[in-house]
């Protein structure tokens, strides 16, 4: 296995984590990772050696993700938002409600806000890295981050939760 492949492979667990949070579903997440790896391999010449490979992989995943979202259509393609998958039974019973809430709340965020929030809060990318990965200015990162966090806070503190749920339904 050459160096490039080994480097990419090291990042698979983190790509899976991010994809899981982003899509909320195990299968859809792994499909996203798989498509990302394929595309990253095909476009590997675009990665500048010495630059942050992980950030670049997030860029690739972002592009794949928005294409999938944009490309949802009936036909032989598997929809990204199929039935909800069962989550692994990691949490003790008492935590489950909270976890469900977190995931439900994440799903309420627009994709572009969810991406920013997860890259910053979960993947701990810097604001600049997040901006680079998504191809947006840092100012946009900050405003999306701010909106995402506030919306999540309101939903989980139960404030206008029902209102938001209604809008989404």
């Amino acid at each position: 296995m050459n160096e490039h492949e080994r480097l990419i492979e090291q990042h698979i667990p983190r790509l899976r984590r991010y994809a899981r949070a982003l899509t909320g579903e195990r299968e859809a997440a792994d499909d996203l990772v798989q498509d990302t790896l394929e595309r990253a391999w095909a476009k590997r010449h675009l990665w500048r050696r010495g630059s942050d490979l992980r950030a670049w992989l997030f860029t690739v995943m972002h592009n794949v993700f928005i294409n999938q979202v944009r490309g949802r259509r009936p036909g032989p393609h598997v929809a990204l938002d199929g039935e909800a998958m069962e989550l692994p039974e990691r949490a003790v019973q008492a935590d489950r409600l909270e976890i469900r809430d977190l995931e439900a709340a994440l799903k309420l965020l627009p994709g572009e806000q969810r991406e920013v929030l997860l890259l910053v809060a979960l993947e701990e990318l810097s604001y600049q890295e997040t901006a680079d990965a998504l191809g947006i200015p840092v100012g946009t990162v900050m405003s999306r981050l701010s909106r995402a966090r506030e919306r999540l806070r309101r939903v989980s503190s139960g404030q206008p939760e029902s209102a938001i749920l209604k809008v989404v339904k």
Binding site: R16, R17, E38, L102, L117, L122
Partner: peptide, 28 residues
């Protein structure tokens, strides 16, 4: 929120990588 997100998704890092993803790179 940061803590909850990290705690919730940390187990994904420990999951074995599905064969289709691990094999993906090798196969190339």
């Amino acid at each position: 929120q940061n803590e909850a997100l990290r705690a919730r998704y940390a187990p994904v890092l420990e999951e074995p990588v599905p064969q289709r993803l691990a094999a993906r790179v090798e196969r190339r």
